[in-house]
Amino acid sequence: MNTLTVLLLLLGIHVAVTDRIRPAIRSLALQGILLGFLPLADSAGSSWRAATLCLATVGVKGIAIPAILTRATSRLGIGQEFESLISTKANILTTGALALAAFLACSRFGLSGSDELGAAAGLTLIFSGLLMMTTRVKAVSQVIGFVVLENGIFLFGAASGSEFTLPIELGIFLDLFVAVFLMGILMFKIHRTFTHMDVRKIHTLKD
């Protein structure tokens, strides 16, 4: 269980600090698959609910979303670099600091209940996902950041032991999938109309 969490955390940090897109997507996919096994490891008993959830997670987070992202990067010829607003080194340092902050926050807020490590890892992922969204230049990297953030929330939720009925859980997956799918479509459209994916240059709507 803890090993799984640590692995998830490391994968997340890899996504956050790497400056190349493909490896990031691959790590993302792996993270999704591992997340899928989390409920199995947690509940120990092999209820059909856990199995469905596992399937859904692996399906959506481990396969579908990475597929969309890969397809987008290759079809749009986006190039390999993430292109960040801050340098890679700064990125690494910030991510480290955020991880530290997450662990601190967990102990401050008394989140140590069921699984402190899981909660802290989840928070780290959330923070680093947000960081990616706010610093990365390309549209696709913002989507990756969003997925990392979602994964973090998922991990955090799992660690906090929040469970919902199956339809709701499935609804959540569906939402996530549609969101990323829509973002993918929008990316295609943006690429077609703007002929680039640089979010920095898209700021005509302002006051």
Partner: peptide, 10 residues
Amino acid sequence: HTGYIHLYLG
């Protein structure tokens, strides 16, 4: 309100 999404997320 510069129009930069990064700032908005920030």
